[in-house]
Design a protein around this nucleic acid. Structure first.
Length: 890
RNA sequence: GGGCGUUUAGCUCAGUUGGUUAGAGCGUCUCGUUUACACCGAGAAGGCCGGGGGUUCGAGCCCCUCAACGCCCACCA
């Protein structure tokens, strides 16, 4: 490798696209080309109309780091990508665009079929955009399995789910007060409301002078539809009136006001009497239903229509007016008739539609609902109970079917949400979405995936809440309801990540559908990430104009720097700040790694890739030290990657890369390489450590590592390279008993394999550093020869089926034996002296504690024993260092 | 009203079950270096780990309490 071949600085732009297509072409994104235990992640599908934002970048980094790690660990790894038709969001977007083009009412203007065509065209067009942007991040998803929530296969799953729930009586059509967005002309679920605080007025008034009740309201106009006055059952003030019906004239209307008792009335609030408007308040509607169940029909008067205007029954003075206008009129009327007792400025939180932004109206309508509190036939449980159980104790109480949430604390809010959950309104009046699979013919109703064959049936006009289809995502993507091998192989999925803001929307629904329809949990582990904020801790938002385009970041720095800066220094579930300086620092690290590699690859010519271990004869203290650090690094990084602690993994990697390897060993290597006696082994260690370092970095920084890899490995891609597991083992080696030692080694390796769940084809590297003292040259060479011989033996002969010796990818055992020897280097002496001092301080502190009689008498035995052991170790260490220093002439 | 989070260096944040001298990045200061890298190196300053109390031989970590900031849910007649 000639030096001029590797540029001084890493220019990501020049490599990233071609690296990505090389990965794609290799086929390793597709688990069909991989073997091993399945490991699956279903990508949370971005909205078709979405543009890539930092949230996507974060999520893709998390998923891709995990899937790359698992792939390298020998798993049959599937990251399945997809997009979401995002019913309301998409239709709202297209309608908005059309309105901006001057079409005031797109639905009326185009009609259902034509508008759907326009939306379809728009989403197909923008779908491609977000997918290509995701590739820029390096996401190693299996594009051959690309799914779309609105494609044929997924629609089948949605219909199947609906039909099953319908026939189980869990989906029903009912007349109830629902959240209605006038602007969107559709219902929305309770979860789709965004509560906004705003200044409002609380009016206290009397329906009439004669009535013994004073009522408070923030919505006087709805009082035109009151049918009752509710009081608390224990409220003595009103006891005498309960059961009576008062006829009053109110705003030109004749109201029949039933005085009823209800536990839900707070006797301490206001006058303790509540005006009941069944048609325009979910709470009041419930009271209405409770009364009905008691045989008392108090009636229901709808005074606000779906157009947001007052209805005919609101009375001639109000019909056709907006609610605001009607409010003014009613208040004026109250004033005029001297019925207004007081007006008070209050802060009120009102529910607004998360997609359309308008304040939702509570309106009674016939809609479709999922019954969450109804027992599932044959299961003895409700959907609520299923949802709870999967997280609390495991599905059907099976610990292996338990959804583990990280961090755990989100379990609390999940339970709380379930407790407050009411029946889920799933029908929407927008057109873009899965049409409800129900057909009508006169009074007949048919629910099925396909309409009845005979003529005359018309399908329900409504579509399904987009989260209904999202709920099937983990398995509809795998071919359900077909009994497909993909489904058998990859479900329940292994891991899922999502932001806490969609915990209820999505995670809960996935658990609901999966446990209900499949008797399986959708995923074993859920990693909850926080939200990204700007430098000042503010949310990224269009209105603030503080957005950062990930593609710009990639362009200016590199995808690797972006990825690193997104996952470093963050804790699961906590929000984190993202700003340019962070990426700059990350890019410096990327460049550092580049330059380390550049130095090694351009100065070491003699050591071939994959052959370094054969020349590995750690000679100096620095040699042994860097190798032991490498072993430790692998242990730590593996553990952190396994538990999705990418932040810690990247910190450890950075520390090793910059401090241990670049600043320390590389500097030491310069003098070691100028000495003929240590040159070869130093070169070998440089290459050996670099190879491993690139491997361990790869899941987090795939591009730069792959590019460097390509400089010295011709055929194999780093992404498909096996993750070398490294462990240090303690053996007293003796050349005379080499076969015995080999058996011991093999035993130790088997233990490492099973303890670390190493896949059969993965290699385990064992670095023996401590406890080896082979002074005689003859002994040494004999032993190394014996060990090296392992590599030439057929695995079946010696090692059984756990270790193969076919190539560098499939396992070989690498052993490096440390030998005594020190590097004559000032820096090392300084380092040693410092270590020595530190050790002395440590010894002193331990001695001090052990001298403390109170401590020794009260502390648990094992603690004291441990400290004594530590003390002995430290003393031993001090002695060793002292000897080393002495031999250096200090 | 119920639940949860955060508070650690000038700034942004790590800190895994209580145990060695509390760490990193950025920033600041000093010195050095152009021979892998100025996207550099060596070093330094900078912390009563929000306040108070408790448990313990020992607390950033566990318990109680207070405060500030933030989030979720419910209520909002």
């Amino acid at each position: 490798m000639a030096k001029q071949d590797i540029p001084k600085a890493y220019e990501a732009k020049e490599y990233e696209d071609s690296l990505y297509s090389a990965w794609e072409k290799s086929g390793f994104f597709n688990p069909d080309n991989l073997s091993g235990e399945p490991f699956s992640i279903m990508m949370p599908p971005p909205n078709v109309t979405g543009v890539l934002h930092l949230g996507h970048a974060l999520e893709n980094t998390l998923m891709d780091s995990m899937i790359r790690y698992q792939r390298m660990r020998g798993r049959k790894a599937l990251l399945l990508p997809g997009t979401d038709h995002a019913a309301v969001a998409t239709q709202a977007r297209v309608e908005k665009n059309l309105m901006e083009q001057g079409i005031a009412n797109p639905r009326e203007h185009y009609g259902r079929e034509k508008l759907l065509e326009l939306i379809r065209a728009y989403s197909e067009e923008s779908k491609a955009t977000i997918l290509s942007q995701i590739k820029k991040l390096g996401t190693s998803a299996d594009w051959s399995r690309l799914a779309y929530t609105f494609d044929e296969q997924r629609s089948r799953a949605v219909n199947e789910m609906f039909v099953r729930m319908y026939h189980d009586g869990l989906i029903y059509r009912g007349y109830r007060v629902v959240n209605w967005s006038v602007k969107g002309q559709s219902t929305c679920s309770d979860d789709e409301l965004v509560y906004v605080d705003r200044a409002s007025k609380l009016y206290t008034f009397k329906y009439s002078k004669e009535l013994p009740f004073t009522i408070a309201t923030t919505r006087p106009e709805t009082k035109l539809g009151d049918t009752a006055i509710a009081v608390h059952p224990s409220d003595e003030r009103y006891k005498q009136y309960v059961g009576q019906v008062f006829d009053v004239e109110f705003g030109g209307n004749q109201l029949k006001l039933h005085v009823i008792e209800d536990e839900h009335v707070d006797p301490t609030f206001g006058t303790g009497a509540l005006g009941v408007t069944p048609a325009h308040s979910p709470i009041d509607f419930e009271m209405y239903e409770r009364q009905k169940a008691l045989g008392n029909d108090i009636g229901l008067i709808q005074v606000v229509g779906v157009d947001g205007l007052m209805t005919q029954v609101a009375g001639t003075a109000y019909v056709g007016k907006t609610v605001e206008e009607a409010r003014e009129l009613v208040v004026a009327m109250l004033r005029e008739k001297n019925l207004l007792v007081s007006e008070e400025e209050i802060e009120q939180s009102v529910g607004t539609s998360d997609r359309f932004g308008d304040i939702v109206e509570a309106i009674p309508m016939t809609q479709w609902f999922v019954a969450v509190n109804k027992e599932i036939p044959g299961r003895g449980k409700t959907l609520k109970e299923l949802m709870k159980e999967a997280v609390a104790v495991g599905h059907n109480g099976d610990r292996d079917q338990k959804v583990e949430i990280t961090p755990e604390r989100f379990e609390n809010s999940y339970y709380q949400w379930i407790d407050n959950l009411r029946d889920w309104c799933i029908s929407r009046q927008i057109w873009w979405g899965h049409r409800i699979p129900v057909w009508y013919k006169g009074a007949e109703v048919f629910c099925g995936e396909h309409p009845p064959e005979v003529q005359g049936w018309t399908q329900d006009a409504d579509t399904l809440d987009t989260w209904f289809s999202s709920g099937t995502w983990t398995f509809s993507t795998l071919g359900w309801p077909d009994t497909d091998t993909d489904f058998e192989t990859f479900h329940p999925t292994s891991w899922m990540q999502m932001g806490y803001e969609i915990l209820f929307f999505w995670m809960a629904r996935m658990i609901l559908m999966s446990t209900y329809a499949l008797d399986q949990i959708p995923f074993k582990q859920v990693y909850i990430h926080g939200m990204l904020r700007d430098k000042n801790g503010q949310k990224f938002s269009k209105s603030l104009g503080n957005g950062i385009d990930p593609l710009d970041v990639i362009e200016a720095y590199s995808a690797d720097a972006l990825r690193y800066s997104l996952v470093t220094g963050v804790t699961p579930g906590n929000d984190s700040r993202f700003y340019e300086e962070k990426v700059e620092a990350a890019q410096r690290l990327v460049n550092k790694l580049w330059n380390i590699s550049r130095f090694i690859l351009t100065s070491v010519e003699t050591i071939e890739h994959g052959k370094a271990f054969k020349e590995l004869t750690p000679t100096t203290l620095a040699d042994r030290w860097i190798l032991s650090r490498l072993v430790r690094l692998e242990e730590e990084v593996s553990e952190h990657m396994q538990t999705a602690d990418f932040s810690q993994a990247s910190e450890k990697l950075r520390e090793f890369t910059w401090n241990d390897f670049a600043d320390w060993y590389l500097e030491a290597s310069k003098s070691q390489r100028s000495d003929e006696s240590t040159k070869t082994s130093t070169d070998a260690i440089l290459v050996y450590v670099l190879e491993h370092l690139l491997t361990y970095w790869h899941p987090i920084m795939p591009f730069v590592t792959e590019q460097i890899w390509s400089y010295f490995v011709d055929e194999e891609l780093l992404m498909a390279h096996a993750w070398p597991v490294m462990r240090m083992i303690d053996l007293d080696l003796d050349a005379e008993k080499e076969m015995v030692q080999l058996q011991a080694l093999i035993g130790a390796i088997r233990t490492i394999r099973s303890e670390n769940n190493v896949a059969p084809k993965q290699k385990v590297n064992v670095v023996i550093i401590g406890g080896v003292v082979l002074n005689e040259d003859e002994e040494r060479s004999k032993f190394i020869k014996a060990l090296a011989g392992v590599n030439d033996l057929n695995s079946a002969d010696v090692l059984g089926d756990t270790i193969n010796v076919a190539s560098t990818v499939v396992g070989s055992m690498q052993v490096c034996v440390s030998l005594e020897g020190l590097v004559d280097k000032e820096a090392e002496q300084v380092k040693l002296s410092k270590q020595y001092e530190e050790t002395l301080v440590y010894i002193k502190s331990l001695e001090g504690k052990l001298a403390n009689e109170t401590f020794v008498s009260k502390a648990p035995e094992h603690v004291v024993a441990g400290m004594k052991q530590n003390l002995a170790d430290a003393q031993k260490k001090a002695l060793t260092i002292n000897e080393q220093l002495t031999s250096m002439g200090l």
